[in-house]
Amino acid sequence: MELVCPAGNLPSLKAAIDNGADAVYVGFKDDTNARNFAGLNFNEKNVGQGIEYAHSHGARLFAAINTFPQPSGWERWTAAVDSAAEAGVDAVILADIGILDYAANRWPDLKLHLSVQGSATNYEAISFMHRTFGIRRVVIPRVLSAPQVRHLAEHTPVPLELFGFGSLCVMVEGRCLLSSYATGRSPNTYGACSPGSHVEWIDRKDGGMETRLGGILVDSCGAGENVGYPTICKGRFEVQGKEGYAIEEPTSLNTLELLPEMMAMGIAAIKIEGRQRSPAYVAQVTRVWRAAIDACKRNPESFRVQSVWNAELDKVAEGAQTTLGAYHRSWQ
């Protein structure tokens, strides 16, 4: 089982690899990836440095080109695929069918992974992508429960990558339009949910804080209350006379305790969310997951989550809680 960690810049990439990541994933400095934030990500020069660092330490580097091009921007996406292939990345993580087709034809030796943004939630969809584009791995959307993931694992020859830790959202990956509603920009096309240019945080005199997105009030918190990212899905609203989190609470996924189950299913890789975070986060989270995966590999039967691991992860979690997410939901 491979540990795949996020890197928004070179120091994060080194932090991931130095702390035991088997692979890192990165994006370019434009809207071709789903973490298109000011000052973040790689250019052609430092992606080469990243690949060199990864390979010299026995790790791999994947490039996420996982947004959906509009007709006017098509060349930007194909150029990103070309840059990644020419730089010598170990795989590209793609979502759009047109870009998958381009990459498969233009760079037949380039390994293709289907991004979580590609939203393949059943084995027929995965098989289609495998047959048509020869994808080597699929990142599974976080809406699936553990039995559903097992069902996928049993029916597809394509290795599965599962999210293990990181900020959760409403998880309608690749199809969510909530950010578009408030800002006109979505993660799917622009590459950022709630772009900074549309966010306002306004301190109140009583120590509380208002969060606005595109001018719309999405949350108002009291003094000392923890907050999350400024997204619509984690906002608090009045619905039928009741105020509260109507869609999703600010929360982080933490699936350490499912590790033996995932290993038994033959899951190929665990993915850590957070290319927008700093090297300190990447180092802290990678260290914990490396230790946990190694312990579970040594002896899955006696594997126990250590409380220091959870304490480390809780510290960097978004919001005030961690959850097993959909993996343990019985309603499906």
Binding site: F37, G39, W201
Partner: peptide
């Protein structure tokens, strides 16, 4: 507070510096 985009760029500049 203020221009959040400016804040993100500042943050990413600082943490993007090679150690």
């Amino acid at each position: 507070e203020g221009d959040v985009e400016l804040g993100l760029e500042t943050k990413n500049l600082i943490y993007g510096l090679d150690v």
